[in-house]
Nucleic acid binder design. Structure first.
Length: 414
RNA sequence: GCGGGUGUAGCUCAGUUGGUUAGAGCACUAGAUUGUGGAUCUAGGGGUCGUGGGUUCAAAUCCCAUCACUCGCCCCA
């Protein structure tokens, strides 16, 4: 392990894993496309202000997890720790607000300076969707349904729980905040150090503390529902009714909160047991205040992000890679015959492997290791008859096939 | 950033109270098989025992530090 090693928290993604990732991305993209979402890509780094302004000065992501540096031109830039901020920035800088509503899908690497752990890396990959310009509960419902359908496609939905909560509108939230501060102040000394800190910065976050004593105190804390005004209550009711109509089951969790100010109304997380401490697999919510906070005109937004590495650890039904057909020249003189046959078959859509060296035995051995489904044995004898031997590597059966009908034969038999 | 566990071959691991040239299985390479793979047999390559320092006549083994991985806290996807 000495010498060269990847930077802590980063990893090489080898073919098997990349294949899984790709399946996940393609599944997500496919479902999103059917909902009318289009793929976009924003830069992997932005001016640091983009994240500082959107994520807030109080969040851990901004205060201690960002990869920030000054570039050669003296600009302070940051490797993106999440996807939504960049999309909001794009909406503003690209003048896209005229075309609302907009439906975007994205995927790509994110960076956070955290302590690596199971399902947690410093460079990791997310896929996500953002629905911009839809203030109606229908947007929340659509986005959740979209997420659920992707998880279903990956065979994960049945192993996960949709947790759902509302953070209400701004008025309700600040009213609740007051209630919480009032309540927790009486227990200030008993709260964990972290939660005492949270009481100043972000009292909502105390609600999802894992500290035992905190939890006891939280158990009797005021309920958000009691602070919600009529608008907020009705909005949430519409969301849950929509989910009911779609038979998407969920669990109300009044302790599910979001740290950031611009979040409002619906907050949701699909969680699972299979990932240790990192149980959240797809999470999001409504962020109507975000674009305005960044300096654009007020724009409703709702979306989610999912961790690809986490999905990859859980995905059940990843298909196998396509199996190839190996072309094996029996004698060196037939090398060129082999490469032109390979070229021809590849152009017809077949996946062809050419052993690069060795006698027939070696090449068959290699074909077997590559999990090829068949081999085409090109020998002088058959070639005189304008044919080649096709050997099925699963059954060991082989037959002579004329070169003219070779492609058809392969199509039929594989 | 804080706590616990673990680092011996590409992988999974063994290595007895410190004691000669550090082992196995799998994998890899070659041969048995100059037109037939998966099985078997034979041979071979591959290790500064994570790294650095210390104790000792002698360290994979004991001590310290450090790095990495891992499980929690935290944070979240």
């Amino acid at each position: 392990m000495a010498g060269l090693q990847p930077v802590r928290g980063t990893r090489d993604i080898l073919p098997d894993e990349r294949w899984r990732h790709r399946f996940i991305e393609e599944t997500a993209l496919g479902v999103a496309a059917r909902y009318g979402y289009s793929e976009i890509a924003t830069p992997i780094f932005e001016f640091s202000d983009v994240f500082k302004r959107t994520l807030g000065d109080t969040s851990d992501i901004v205060t201690k997890e960002m990869y920030t540096f000054t570039d050669k031109g003296g600009d302070e830039v940051t490797l993106r720790p999440e996807g939504t901020a960049g999309v909001a920035r794009m909406l503003i800088s690209g003048g896209l607000a005229q075309d609302l509503p907009l439906k975007y899908f994205y995927r790509g690497p994110m960076f956070r300076y955290e302590r690596p752990q199971k399902g947690r890396f410093r460079q990791f990959h997310q896929t996500g969707v953002e629905l911009l310009g839809v203030a109606e509960p229908l947007g929340d419902i659509e986005v959740i349904a979209l997420g659920a359908e992707i998880l279903e496609g990956l065979g994960i939905l049945s192993k996960s729980t949709l947790e759902l909560n509302t953070l209400g509108n701004a008025e309700s939230r600040s009213a609740y905040r007051e209630e919480l501060i009032k309540y927790f102040n009486d227990f200030r000394a008993e709260l964990s150090e972290d939660s005492q800190d949270r009481l100043e910065r972000n009292p909502l976050r105390i609600l999802d503390s894992k500290n035992k004593r905190d939890r006891e105190i939280v158990a009797n804390a005021p309920e958000f529902a009691d602070s919600l005004d009529t608008e907020s209550t009705e909005f949430f009711a519409a969301v849950t009714e929509g989910l009911d109509a779609l038979s998407i089951s969920y669990q109300l969790n009044s302790r599910l909160v979001r740290g950031l100010d611009y979040y409002c109304h619906t907050a949701f997380e699909f969680t699972t047991e299979g990932l240790g401490a990192q149980g959240t697999v797809l999470a999001g919510g409504r962020y109507d205040g975000l674009v305005e906070q960044m300096g654009g005109t007020a724009t409703a937004g709702v979306g989610w992000a999912a961790g690809i590495e986490r999905l990859a650890m859980l995905a059940q039904n990843v298909p196998g890679v396509e199996r190839s057909i190996a072309i094996i020249p029996v004698v060196p003189e037939l090398q060129n015959k082999a490469i032109s046959l390979a070229h021809d078959l590849r152009s017809r859509g077949f996946t062809i492997e050419l052993g690069y060296r060795g006698n027939m035995s070696r090449r068959l051995k290699r074909a077997n290791k590559l999990n090829a489904k068949a081999s085409i044995i090109l020998g002088p004898d058959e070639l005189e008859r304008g044919a080649a031997t096709v050997r099925n590597l699963d059954t060991g059966n082989q037959e002579e096939v004329s070169l003219e009908t070779l492609a058809d034969h392969l199509k039929q038999h594989n």
